[in-house]
Amino acid sequence: MPAHVKVGDTLPSLEKVISQERINRWAELSGDFNLLHVDPAYAAKTPFKGTIAHGPMSLAFLNELMMLCFGMDWLSGGILADVRFVSPVRPGDRITVKGVVTAISNRQDRRYAECELFVEKQDGTKAVVGRGISPMRTSG
C-alpha cells in the first residue's frame, strides 16, 4: 500500500465480533480484571448497564489495521495519536475497524501518511476515534 497511497484512500477494514469470552481473555492477558469488564451482575448495576470491552483491546485493533497497511514502517516511527473512546463496545457487538488517508507529508527525508482511524459498531456508532501517522518507505 505505501507505494501508491494517496489522500482519500480508504484502508482495508477489519471486522471483529466482541464476546464476553474475548473480554475475559483480554482481562487475563492484561491483568485488568475491573468488574465493569468481567462481572455482568456488577456491571448491570453501573451506568453502563452491562459489561464493556477494555479500551486497549480497541487500540490493539487500530494497531492491527496500521500494521496491515504499513507493516514494519509502522514500528519505526508510527504514531497513534488523539485516541478517544467515545462509546463503549459491548459483548455481542460486531465492530469494524476503518481508516482513511487524510494527508501525505514529507518530514526529514521521510514520507508520512496521516490517517483518520475509527472503530465503528454495527449501528454505525463510532466507538473509538484516533489518528495514525505512519512513515512510508520512499522506495515503495
Binding site: L29, A60, F61, N63, E64, M66, M67, G71, L75
Partner: peptide
C-alpha cells in the same frame, strides 16, 4: 485474543519474531 494473524509476527513461534505493537497498551 485480538485475532491478528499478520505474518510479520510469525505467530510468535520463535524468539526474534516481531511482537505486535498493541502490547503497548498493556
Amino acid at each position: 485474543v485480538v485475532g491478528d494473524d499478520n505474518p510479520l509476527y510469525e505467530k510468535g513461534l520463535r524468539d526474534g519474531a516481531i511482537a505486535p505493537p498493541g502490547l503497548a497498551a498493556i
